[in-house]
Design a protein around this nucleic acid. Structure first.
Lengths: 247, 247
DNA sequence: AGAAGAGATTGGCATAGACCAATCGTGCGC
DNA sequence: GCGCACGATTGGTCTATGCCAATCTCTTCT
């Protein structure tokens, strides 16, 4: 089978850094091009994949370095902050926007409200160890005027819903796909445009089957893993799958 | 914010194909380069991302075309074939290899068997509508000499386990991450090397908490979505998380 | 010392072009 | 009419190069 040259260089670099500790500097692109007798373009393609794989990080003007291993993990079943706190990672979030919004089209369908209903929008940057790891936009099917203050107090959105509204998310459905970081998201997360990310669409229901949340989250694909555990034998719950999800 | 030129071209092409039905031909790279007053390299970068996004497909010698929308979905909770059959997609699989293997290191830990135990390895190509969509390697903690014939008879691995061994997978844990297709996998699935894929590590337990399966699956990221539904309030089951998962 | 600034270094973006490989269509020969 | 061969077209890979932007370092001035 034909293996592209950039891929052989990728493997060569992998071997080169195999024994180096995270944070070590990697030779410059220009030097690697010389060493492997190829062009800088080809070396850059190899390095680009290693960055996506979470093996290297690049900083313009500074250099290329061996990355921390990809070991972050989150259990999407429970709440974000709960999961990460359990693992001791100092989860946090930066509120980018809290606003009201009139639900139309897909959003209204997702939240199971009539088109024209005012709903709540919460846009946040999720962090762990103060490093941004996800961009998240949550939608709630009703407006909570004090949400900003309450969120600041409780920290977690799920906790706020429980304390202030008596709403408990009992069932959730996650749809996971890969997307590439657009320039805006990439800038927010401090990664390169085009980095593969994990996009999670989450629909949450309370115990009575009412939709209480619809959220889209983009997680850094280079730093993240996703975990979910489930019983295979259970009964059907309300489904979000009735709404078409073709993009 | 600075938006790279290739990204603006990507958006321009997206607009260009917005109203075209799947299968429509897109202008050639050389023509697009002329039309957008840029180099073919830059156009190719834009198209490459659109391919990854599942918006376009390219065939060497033939051209670039509007892709089918990304709408495949699978519920990882139950078995692969069960899910897809439900949606009427003619799921299938091609057995690439069935062999015995002596479990060592991580594999032994995952399967909870002593190092040196012979185990079963099943490598398959999963298909839907006869199109390959995933590459999967399953490991079972014991050897089943007749597995090839039984698999051919029952079709599904889960069903084989149930009928022949009385083993039912009652709980499963999935760990999802993004990886890039290596040349071998890419060739098997008929996609480009470097395409982002969804890798799923699955550990399956029976009702007594014994590990009955450890499987690694690579799904095409451009054609696939992943769905899982869960209760948020349930009790802990056996965990695979005790084994380190740093790559 | 400490701060400011100039220059070198490094990665980021884009260009132009050469050659390869798969595909498709056309026309020739049978 | 049919099939094969060849050539044109299209995407695939790689090279060489120029300039930009962020960063770092070292010098110089106060």
């Amino acid at each position: 089978m034909k293996v592209p040259k950039y891929y052989r260089i990728k493997e060569a670099i992998l071997e080169l850094i195999a024994d180096l500790p995270p944070g070590s500097t990697v030779p410059t692109e220009r030097e690697l091009a010389g060493r492997f007798d190829t062009s800088r373009t080809t070396v850059r393609q190899a390095i680009a994949e290693l960055v996506v794989d979470g093996k290297l990080v690049r900083t313009q003007g500074s250099g290329t370095f061996v990355a921390q291993p990809k070991m972050m993990r989150v259990r999407p079943l429970s709440s974000f902050s709960q999961d990460l706190a359990m693992d001791g990672w100092r989860p946090g979030s930066v509120v980018l926007d809290i606003s009201e919004l009139v639900a139309e089209g897909e959003l209204a369908e997702r939240l199971r409200v009539p088109p024209g209903t005012p709903v709540q929008r919460v846009e946040r940057l999720r962090t762990a160890f103060d490093e941004p790891i996800a961009h998240e936009v949550a939608h709630l099917p009703r407006v909570l005027p004090q949400l900003a203050e309450q969120l600041a107090e409780y920290g977690s959105l799920y906790r706020t819903l429980r304390e202030e509204c008596g709403t408990v998310v009992a069932t959730a459905e996650d749809i996971v796909e890969t997307v590439l970081a657009d320039p805006v998201t990439a800038d927010l997360l401090g990664v390169d445009t085009g980095l593969p990310m994990l996009r999670v669409y989450r629909t949450g229901w309370d115990a009575d089957g009412n939709v209480v949340e619809w959220t889209v989250s983009d997680f850094r694909g280079d730093r993240f893993r996703f975990m979910s555990r489930q019983r295979l034998d259970w009964k059907d719950a309300p489904s979000a799958a009735e709404v078409g999800t073709a993009s």
